[in-house]
Design a protein around this nucleic acid. Structure first.
Lengths: 192, 192
DNA sequence: GCATATCTGTACCAAATGGTACATACAAAA
DNA sequence: TTTTGTATGTACCATTTGGTACAGATATGC
């Protein structure tokens, strides 16, 4: 009985990839057990709430990552550090491209939003998109975009990212996603 | 044993709504049986291939509907009838808004594209988006949009529709979808 | 009226589902 | 070294899964 993981956080990323590619219902405990290498004993030790708690943990992990790597940097007001708001928006696009692997990786929040499972995770799903849009709109305003346009453009960016992921998957082609990001970047009045 | 349906086409729409909201794996035969009112006997009579054949039938049905109501009208060259290419594009947006119920109804093709199920239905998923984009690009060109821009704008429209659906679901708000369509309409240089 | 092809309900199947119980192995603190 | 809390594997559970078999009901053509 060699110990495989020290804490549950160690397998959350693997769980994330499973839920991404197989959906909530499509991710069976057998599959989870196989991919993580952990038996049911361990799984239910780390996640007493079973599959639902695993999904919640994954969503919290993703939410935390975006908060740290995307939302917070966007919100950081100028003066705190030397980078401009424009540079931070550019950094967001780069991070998004990397995170979603140019559209080859699905957005778990978006995937959950589309199905019936949404109801189980409403709060997280709702918060994720709202906080992203508000943070981006703020950065856009600080970058010189007229206040009444900022929120609309931010919404446009989120729509584009999600749509780009869908089309990239449908066509099995990451170029659609890259082109979309490029276009959105231009829409934010940033140099490529 | 009262007869409920004359032919399998009668229950395909109901199957579509089930797959839309519960996904492929989430749609169990028990659920199908309950919602359609048909027992397994009837279901396997109409769809000997089981669930997979049901999903294929639904996709074929959807594909046929879009071909008839969206793609073909877009392709129709001017002169065949009196409407202009611009009017046909406007009609497409209206039809899309109605079909997806302003984003409250998911796109089954998009949903399938995101998950692992994609592999089972690659051909249909691929064809659906390509034919749509090509037809729309043609109509745009005929409406006066420069040829080198038409395909890009068409892609932008498809991305926007899919992204709009995702965000409308996430926020449980159809306004995001309507705003997106409005914006895309403007992008096609059409009056609202 | 009768034969035939088309439907439909029920019973059944093996496999997989999410989940529980518990004895055992391990590591770190005492 | 013993103790204690943390992991882990295995066996097991009821339920549900997708799918089959088939007898009986219902239409339709002759």
């Amino acid at each position: 009985m060699a110990r495989l993981v020290a804490e549950r956080a160690d397998i959350v990323p693997a769980l994330g990839e499973l839920f991404r590619t197989h959906g909530y219902q499509g991710t069976s405990l057998a599959l989870i057990s196989e991919r993580t290498g952990l038996g049911k004993g361990s799984l239910y030790h780390f996640f007493p709430g079973g599959k639902e708690e695993m999904a919640q943990a994954v969503l919290a992990d993703i939410d935390g990552w975006f908060e740290r790597e995307i939302f917070a940097p966007l919100r950081a007001s100028e003066g705190e550090c030397e980078t401009t708001a424009g540079a931070r928006i550019a950094a967001m696009f780069a991070a998004v491209d990397a995170y979603f692997r140019s559209g080859r990786r699905a957005c778990l929040v978006g995937t959950f939003a589309l199905g019936q499972v949404r109801e189980r995770f409403t709060v997280v799903i709702d918060g994720y998109f709202w906080r992203w849009q508000v943070a981006l709109a703020g950065a856009l305003a600080r970058a010189g975009v007229p206040a009444h346009e900022a929120s609309g453009i931010a919404e446009e960016v989120l729509v584009g990212i999600q749509g780009g992921i869908v089309l990239a998957h449908a066509r099995d082609d990451s170029e659609v996603f890259r082109r979309t990001l490029e276009r959105l970047r231009a829409r934010c009045r940033l140099a490529p």
